[in-house]
Design a protein around this nucleic acid. Structure first.
Lengths: 208, 208, 208, 208
DNA sequence: AATGAATGAGACTTCATTCAT
DNA sequence: TATGAATGAAGTCTCATTCAT
């Protein structure tokens, strides 16, 4: 017998809308304050829905977070797909700098920049969130690894592994700097340029 | 014979001890669980002190955190001092790689690695903590900036500014990778070597 | 060709079916869990009926219980009838032991053994249920009384009253022991035999 | 590490008083309404205590029940002790009727007659309570068994087992009749007399 | 100074019942 | 008639904080 508490599975449009509205409100509030300081009652009230309704769509506050994580995951997938894409790889075979630039653009353009911060926060606290983050990062690291593998000459697989870890770290650091630190638009451009150049240098030098 | 049970420790000192013990317990618990999941009553009990006593030393749970942050700040100062030290600067004037290595060692050896994670987490949540973190990072960035300023030839102040931001980001990313990701000891050595080399390359190339 | 999907069952009948199905499900669930741990929504869902429909047939959860009690009552009636039956009385006039055996069999074979437990439980909680139980018990006691009345020689009406109360208690105790305590089939046979013999002894001795 | 939530262990008199007052109120309310229809808030309010205080003494509503059961158990123990007592056994060796009478008196005089009903009710619902009840009943049955064992002549151990089960059932039924059904005082005396006589008859006849 | 019993707002969650469609 | 989304009062429990001793 199925022990899951049966949360409403919205079939009709109205129901889906309401569920989405709850999710949206929750996300908004989680971003504004933070997961721990947002109450389910508040989410319900701000959505303009009774607490009972909220709990008919979600079995718990955790469940709301889980759905949000799921959505985040799903919104991240196309970005990964784009990057992992054969075409882009082919196109960038001979032009590492463009590949790098493209990669960084994809990561920077990822939606949910603000919710991403909540995820980062929660990854310190909620194991499930930690795993999600790790999975995402590993996927990107693997992608970089594959690209390097293709280009490597006198470099061992081991070295490439380390290099891809480090390059992923640098790329992430750069993306974070661009997304979350307050810089003017022109500063951002410069930082991005410098960042890409520097990482490119690193790759060129170590992958001779 | 009048044998006083105990040599009385001056009231102030005893008070300070108690306060410190509370802070220590709080920090331990914040690390073990996390700020949100630790209660003031728990801190008091684990310290072996009544909740009333705790509240005679601290006005609120937030206040405990504030003091801890303050301590963290103070423990960070000597590290900064060491790095900013004229001597080290002089010593490393001609050897950027050694300077870099030294810088990274200092940051890696910083105490409170574990509490640092709590701070990172809370910086997403508590503005005061965010500011602290930013202040620390800015100080290190400034330090790097100063070093670069000294070496720059055909580089504008502006460019140096960006470069120091980026290099700080890379250094931080490397330190985090070394401290918080699970690598074997030999892997760590390799990653560190690669990391230092790559950052060195970046500096050399962009500061020619 | 105009082929109506379904021969329409007269509305009344269909309604009755649905109502019965709800009652059946409710009873099943009340037995499986217990009255307090079963929700109306659950009953509706398990019946395959909307909660709205449920509330169109029953005005409240209590009402469902009331109907179930009513049904229980009605299903108990034939049993009483059988026992009270003139024929059986006649048949057993000269054979108290057989009469006793028959009585116990009837009570043991009563349907709804499991629901009976719910009723017993609820009789501690819901006055209405308490009354129902009392009414049933009184009816059986009366029946025993009548039988004894017939046989009494040097016994006052008063004494017969008390005796029938006590004998009813013993019979009930025996039936409960047989129905609800875990005994092997052969143990049950022995207990039943002993029980009947002992009650028979009581009657014989006190009614001589 | 001890995972039990630390409920207050009252050392001082005042604390013990308060805990007892909560228990007393809870018992009163459980008797008046029933366990399921009494809320912790109500218990707290009626005790004249905040809900927080209640939860500092008890970890949950279940815990309150558990303590009450424990107390019940402990109040039952002396009764058992009295019955099991060597002296009484010796004294009643030659006088089964007196032994029976004594046994029934002890059970009838058991305190907590009203709470006993709650326990009976809950034993249908809460396994823990069911077990408690069973344990009590088994102890009394064993006691009866021992007594019979002593007296048995041409009776097998097996038969004695069954007889003691049945006699226990009859005794319980009689005690319940005396305690919970509304009879006048003189009626009670008669019922008791008849009951004892009848059970005595049973024993005599079957233990010849 | 220190104690710790006491507080109560507020968090999460359930469920009998209603009502627009 | 039937549906099921929606309601919200009420229940259990937590925890930062206070205050009489």
């Amino acid at each position: 017998m199925d022990k899951r508490k049966d949360t409403r599975i919205p079939v009709q449009k109205r129901g889906k809308d309401k569920k989405n509205r709850i999710l949206l409100t929750a996300k908004k509030l989680f971003i504004e304050k933070n997961y721990f300081e947002v109450s389910t009652n508040e989410i319900a009230k701000q959505t303009g829905v009774s607490i009972g309704t909220l709990y008919s769509y979600f079995s718990s506050k955790d469940d709301i977070l889980a759905e949000l994580l799921n959505d985040y995951n799903n919104s991240f997938l196309p970005i990964l797909k784009k990057i992992n894409n054969q075409e882009s790889f082919q196109a960038f075979k001979t032009d590492t700098k463009s590949w790098l630039s493209y990669l960084i653009d994809q990561l920077t353009d990822a939606e949910d920049k603000e919710f991403h911060l909540q995820i980062e926060m929660l990854s310190f606290v909620v194991p499930k969130v930690f795993d999600l983050r790790k999975r995402h990062n590993d996927q990107i690291t693997d992608l970089i690894y594959e690209y390097f593998l293709y280009y490597a000459n006198n470099t061992t697989v081991h070295e490439i592994r380390f290099l891809s870890i480090i390059v992923f770290d640098y790329i992430s650091a750069l993306v974070d700097e661009l997304l979350y630190n307050k810089h003017s638009s022109s500063e951002k451009d410069d930082i991005k340029k410098y960042g890409i150049n520097s990482i490119h240098t690193v790759i060129k030098t170590h992958l001779n």
